[in-house]
Computed example of a mutant assay.
Amino acid sequence: MSPAGFVPAPPSASVAFRARLAHLVSPLRRVRPRVPFFELAIHRTPTLALYRNLLRHAPDDNIRTRVQYLFRKHQHATGTEKTKQQLLKGYKWLDAFKKAREGDEKQREIFIRYSRLIAVRVEKHYWKRLARAELAHQAHLARRPILTGALIKATLFSPPLPRMKPQPPGISGMIRSRMRARDRRIAHVERLIEEKADLRAEAAFEEEGVLLEGQRVTRVYSGEAATGWNAPIRDTINLYNRLLSRDIARAKTPVSPALQATLLAARREKVANKTRERARERRGVVLPGTLRRARKGPPAHILVHMSPQERHLDRVVRGVGEVGYVGMIKRRMGVKLRDGGKGLARENGWDLEGEAREKVLGDEKAYWIEKMRRMERNVRLERG
Rank of each mutant, 00 (worst) to 15 (best):
K252I: 05
G324F: 00
G319K: 04
K270M: 04
V286A: 14
L211E: 15
G324C: 00
P288H: 13
A249K: 11
P257D: 04
R311C: 12
I233A: 03
K296G: 12
A261T: 15
I233R: 12
R331M: 08
L337Y: 08
G319L: 04
L264W: 11
A226Y: 07
E269V: 04
N273Q: 15
V320M: 03
E208V: 06
V286E: 15
R280C: 09
V326W: 00
A231W: 12
S307Q: 10
G340H: 01
L259K: 09
A300H: 02
V316K: 00
R295D: 04
G223W: 01
A265N: 14
T218R: 08
E207L: 01
V323Q: 09
R292V: 01
R338W: 08
T262E: 15
Q260F: 11
Q309T: 09
G214D: 13
M306T: 03
G228P: 04
E277L: 05
R318Q: 01
P308I: 02
R332F: 14
A279I: 10
E224D: 14
D339G: 04
R268I: 09
S222Y: 03
A272R: 14
L212M: 11
E206R: 03
A251M: 13
A279N: 13
E206M: 03
H312S: 03
T227N: 14
G223A: 02
A272T: 10
V271L: 02
H305P: 04
M333S: 05
A300K: 00
R283H: 07
R276G: 12
N241E: 11
K274R: 15
I302T: 09
